[in-house]
Nucleic acid binder design. Sequence first.
DNA 1: CTTGAAAGCCGGTGGTA
DNA 2: TACCACCGGCTTTCAAG
Lengths: 160, 160
Amino acid sequence: MGHHQLDTLDEQILKLIAENARIPFLEVARACNVSGAAIHQRIQKLTNLGILKGSEFVIDPEKIGYETCAYIGIYLKDPESFDSVTQALQAIPEVVECHFTTGKYDMFIKIYARNNHHLLSVIHDKLQPLGLARTETLISFHEAIKRQMPIIVETEEEEL
Amino acid sequence: MGHHQLDTLDEQILKLIAENARIPFLEVARACNVSGAAIHQRIQKLTNLGILKGSEFVIDPEKIGYETCAYIGIYLKDPESFDSVTQALQAIPEVVECHFTTGKYDMFIKIYARNNHHLLSVIHDKLQPLGLARTETLISFHEAIKRQMPIIVETEEEEL
DNA sequence: CTTGAAAGCCGGTGGTA
DNA sequence: TACCACCGGCTTTCAAG
């Protein structure tokens, strides 16, 4: 599944809406020197292509009571059980990311918990029963950077 | 910096807008059985409290050419250089997260790169010069789960 | 991609409890 | 303080060109 070629207008639009999902489309239109309808059509196109997958409000985890963020490397007892474990992890709301990775771990997940005690209970009561051989936990004291990937459309290089 | 007490209306609003930043406030209002102005005011309150930190469109990294996602554990040469390294990492757009963690690493970051070659060049040309003693890279083949933390307001337990 | 127009929303004001 | 009703101006969305 390769990626699609985006033109300059797509790129401008993505840059503007990526960091502010509630920006009025007309404002985007003015910034891009096109009509509002054009923005509407492009955003629909980008959505249909699966490039835009939705929008989110960004919520400060600490401010709603999630004081502990942790990454956990998982060793499975049965390396065949990826899919069933992934499905089980889906049902644990504290798990916000789940990766299938190279290296020593079979899986690698990110968790938000209310505090260290809550984190321990998630690991002990919810994760271990899934058939894990062992886990390694990495607690984050502080998330210094949290942002989206850069939006840089690789254009065919033009000679100057 | 503890967290604020949210009531049921705040919680309902957060749940609705967290997963869809462009939902009309009036639709939220109808779902919550209050007026549109009430939603408007609550969202402003939540923003002022710092609970809402903005909004984002969710973009599929692969669809815009980022085929490699990796986590990197960093050992610093000089453990005092957190702040300057963090600042330097800010200037590297491929770095999307940066954590200060417990355990063996001094820092832990997440990176999006176009491909393995691009990832290597980021590590070699941009990260190593910052004064790192060593790095450990964990490449993600597949991100099976990617979502926000659960919004569960701890209410004072009410007897039934 | 544009214009144009209808439908509907946003964000403010003032009033009520 | 928190909610509601109301209104002007702007946005969104869908034609058609």
